[in-house]
């Protein structure tokens, strides 16, 4: 692997009182190469979103505390980066698709206006901003994009809001896209459409993707490597095929077994037996 696009080392993040902290992220290290897709899996509350937000220091302090770690993006240290540089990094270099589409758009501006702002801020060289907005919306499968530009977020369905968020993130043409469960609000066909789109963009632009998901189907289809998080720690990582075929950690094994497989008869879904882990 050449010089990594992103390198996270010993990242530690706490919440709550200093004497009894909640260690949301505890000694997490990983690296990503340009154009690579890394999946982060793990149960709810395992620290996936917190890790993702920390990449551009988006967590509000307080309540969060960055207790340890270094984050290098393209060789530059994010943890000590001055604010203006950090702002230039966000969006332009690292863009996010958030978990909650419904409250991630500003309610009082039209979606066209919001995408316009993102484009104007990060790609001032674009001449035909309007055409670019329409293209961005077309790309994520919003039909009649030109007539929907004037819609306010509340006039869109949850799935459409999520697609607008995705369009906005992609319109910035980032080097790293952090997608926090980008397809949870979407139905299966749209989900496939979006993932195909991401795959296509990835191959065209060499954009790296950090994909946070619960969906092992997506992981096996899409990710080059997997990181498994459990209670704030990385318990397992490696190339996707390997991890899925030979999970080392009992938690990973349990997680994979919990996914119902098509065509396989099973009376009951498996439930993770926490007593057996650790």
């Amino acid at each position: 692997m050449s010089a990594p696009l992103l390198r996270v080392e010993n990242l530690g993040i706490e919440f709550g009182p200093a004497d009894a902290p909640v260690k949301a992220v505890d000694g997490v290290s990983f690296a990503m190469a340009a154009g690579e897709t890394l999946a982060v899996v793990g149960e709810s509350g395992s620290g996936k979103s917190v890790t993702a937000l920390a990449l551009t220091r988006l967590l509000a302090t307080p309540p969060a505390r960055y207790v340890s770690g270094a984050i290098q993006f393209q060789g530059r240290e994010v943890m000590t980066m001055p604010a203006p540089e950090l702002r230039a990094l966000r969006g332009k270099q690292i863009a996010y698709i958030f978990q909650e589409p419904s409250s991630s758009l500003n309610p009082v501006f039209t979606i066209g206006y919001q995408i316009r702002e993102a484009i104007e801020q990060h790609r001032p060289e674009v001449r035909d901003v309007r055409g670019e907005i329409v293209r961005a919306l077309d790309l994520v499968g919003i039909r009649d994009a030109a007539t929907r530009l004037g819609d306010y977020p509340h006039q869109l369905s949850g799935g459409m809001q999520q697609r607008v968020m995705i369009a906005m993130a992609l319109a910035c043409q980032p080097n790293l896209l952090v997608a926090d469960e980008p397809t949870t609000a979407l139905d299966v066909t749209i989900q496939k459409q979006i993932m195909d789109l991401l795959r296509e963009l990835k191959s065209k632009t060499n954009m790296a993707i950090l994909l946070i998901t619960h969906n092992f189907g997506l992981v096996s289809d899409f990710a080059d490597r997997v990181v498994v998080m459990f209670r704030g720690k990385i318990v397992e990582s490696g190339p996707t095929a390997e991890v899925l075929r030979h999970p080392q950690h009992p938690y990973t094994r349990a997680l994979i077994e919990c996914v119902p497989k098509l065509g396989q008869k099973q009376r009951r879904l498996k439930v993770i037996d926490y007593a057996g882990i650790n």
Binding site: L53, T56, L58, A60, R87, A88, L89, R90, G91, K92, A95, Y96, F98, E100, S103, S104, L105, N106, P107, E117, A118, Q121, H122, M165, M168, C172
Partner: peptide
């Protein structure tokens, strides 16, 4: 709500 954070995430 998350839109202020989303705005920050866009720089």
């Amino acid at each position: 709500q998350s839109f202020p954070q989303a705005a920050q995430a866009l720089g």
